[in-house]
Design a protein around this nucleic acid. Sequence first.
DNA 1: CACTACTATCTTGTTTTGAGATAGCCTGAC
DNA 2: GTCAGGCTATCTCAAAACAAGATAGTAGTG
Lengths: 296, 296
Amino acid sequence: MQLKSLRLFMAVAKTGSFVAAANQLHTVQSNVTAHIKKLEDELDVQLIQRAGRVRPTSAGLALVEYTERMLTAHDEAVSLFKGQEKACGRLRIGAMETTTAIRLPPILAAYHAAQPDVDIQIKTGPTAELVELLLDGQVDCVFVAGRLEHSRYHLLKAFSEQLVLVGSTPMSTMPSSQKLLTSAFLAFRQGCSYRQRIELLLASHGVNAGRIFEFGSLDAMLGCVAAGMGYTVLPRGTVEAHQYRFGIHTLELPSSIANIDTYFAAFEPETWTPALASFAETLREAVVDEPQLTAS
Amino acid sequence: MQLKSLRLFMAVAKTGSFVAAANQLHTVQSNVTAHIKKLEDELDVQLIQRAGRVRPTSAGLALVEYTERMLTAHDEAVSLFKGQEKACGRLRIGAMETTTAIRLPPILAAYHAAQPDVDIQIKTGPTAELVELLLDGQVDCVFVAGRLEHSRYHLLKAFSEQLVLVGSTPMSTMPSSQKLLTSAFLAFRQGCSYRQRIELLLASHGVNAGRIFEFGSLDAMLGCVAAGMGYTVLPRGTVEAHQYRFGIHTLELPSSIANIDTYFAAFEPETWTPALASFAETLREAVVDEPQLTAS
DNA sequence: CACTACTATCTTGTTTTGAGATAGCCTGAC
DNA sequence: GTCAGGCTATCTCAAAACAAGATAGTAGTG
């Protein structure tokens, strides 16, 4: 059974004429006859009443219903990839908590305005988990901290973040090693790339990573920092956005530790759905139009 | 885009191997490659990731969802006609009010027991309307009074009915012409073949058809007869089934007027769905097993 | 570095397909 | 009843598509 045959069958059922069906689908009448006949042979039932009026038989009418489902699904699948202008379907994005909170909203807004027919799904998690999601096909693209080592990714430097030390009291200089040693550090759960920077920071002050509390959400973490539970390290933009809500203070870090880039990563562009290609385009434009996004 | 290609694509996506997909669908690996490649060329997107692991790309995963819908509809359509043993789908029956009430229930019960997966739909109406429904493809088969003249029907004598005169008072002989002339007759709406018999009956007593009230349902009609509104003509079985509910009385009619056959009619058997073929078979068995159904 | 398992490509013979030409059939008009 | 017009079935042939096998190339493994 071929989709081509089913299209001809539907045309015959709807027009009530083999000739009309042939014209409608740009072929000749003999081919319509052949396709219908082949369908009838395969299903071992007469689908079209030819005596007098040409009309679907009971069996034909029953087939029409299933054929409509089939052809509808087919048309939708084709329009997923060949839809002119507007993309459709679904776009699944993986991003870090901090990126989702601060960087993504304007980009998603621009994208949704450009491609209103695409359903957007966001999954958040630390970098290591996001890479797993991408490899596992559970998301179409991710925003992660630092370049991915894997070779066959398409990478685009999306945002440049500057990490700052966050604490509950004003800081003008780095806390003493003694202070650091006795303080707790708060970080996202295992896999967060910012966490590596915390350890780097401590190491640069001759302190081994002590207690690190793991958090699942940004709000919880900042709330605990504000309560004096300890320090954390976060992008400046993220902290600024929340500073009015929490009594927290920041300290700039040396650039070797502070600067970290957020990359957009996906597989090769040839594997992209139009929805994803359009998103990458929107992102590229946003990055170009507002270079401060990637400036340190 | 061919269903064959889509099946291979699904097999590759599920097994993660071209070779495995080829074995599963009884073909060779080079054909799998060719079909996938053709799909990719048509949609202008890479569907399968070949580097390293063989797995669907983002685009491929998107296609999987639509393909599943397509193939499911296809499988259901095929099983409609090629389902082994049990028929499935839908059976739309047209029948007269009296047939539906008395004759069909045991047949439908037997049929449903044999083919539990078939959805049964009954439409009732007078013979003329039923024929229209059948011609219009709105039902798959009908039960009508009298042979259909049209040549290209498959006919089966299903039931033999004996019409009786029904009135509100006991009758031992035919009411007088005078009585008939001043009485009302109750019948189904235009198109009911029993109605012709009423006119035949009146004519045989030298009376022109006077007032005939039209009813849509059997209950309403019998209720009005019982209330003394007038006479009607109905199959004996129908009246007997309702006699305990209504105070009605019957009188036998001459066989030329009384005997009327109910036929099962559908188009040629080649146009039947398995559900319809199975129903015809059930009906034939019922008629053979209980010849009194068609005996006068 | 070689081995293994896999996919891509090429080739060949066969099947399928599309389009035209023709014959036969039904319908409606005169 | 006959005839014309429109429709479908059948036949034919060339072109295209396809399946299968053989072979080459590639990635991952020890």
